[in-house]
Amino acid sequence: MSGLSSGLIDHYLADLQRRLRFDHRLAARARADVEEYLAEALDGADTRAPGPQAALARFGSAADMARLYAEAALPERLRDTLRWLVCLVVATFLFMRLRTMAMGLADGGSAWLALADGAGFGLGALLCGLAWRVGAGPAAQAGRLILWAFVALAASAAANLLRAPLRLAADASAADLALLLASGALQLGLLIFGAVQLQRMGRHLRLLA
């Protein structure tokens, strides 16, 4: 293979991977498929063997290929994101209940924070359920519902985490503080992981827009 052809293929593969960089596994898969196809298509044993340029032209542009692979992987991406969202709903509920019961958050405290805590969770769970229902339908709609469910759950978690220190300010025990710090750190970790998942989903959807 000439240097020019090799450069053409390298450029094509790099372009394809760059377009799919939001999903490293998908990018690697697309690259492996193109490499396998080119190896077969350029094999001398095939009498119809085209040149690298013709073979790539038959395969389609890197932009078209990235789009086709992204389309193929979108249902899996939405399923993964929805599964993570359900975990977030369950974790938010469990931590909320745990802190409320262990620290007596139900009594007194800021009414606004209590409202944001409860309403945010309810709204988040509702939107998660809706996203699950439309999961197999329009991807952009499911993506928007997932985004708003995440925002609502993040607001609920933030409000609940703020309520605890306010409540404990006067008579905090070491056990309460440990519970607050541990559960807060875990919840924060889940939210950061979720934000990364959402960012990837957004880039995936933007490629298909």
């Binding site: 498929d33 038959r58 395969f59 389609g60 290929m65 086709l68 193929a72």
Partner: peptide, 16 residues
């Protein structure tokens, strides 16, 4: 068929 349509479709069927 354009070859480029086949490989992503195979991947999609695999994911399904």
């Amino acid at each position: 068929l354009p070859e480029g349509t086949i490989y992503p479709a195979l991947h999609r069927l695999e994911l399904a």
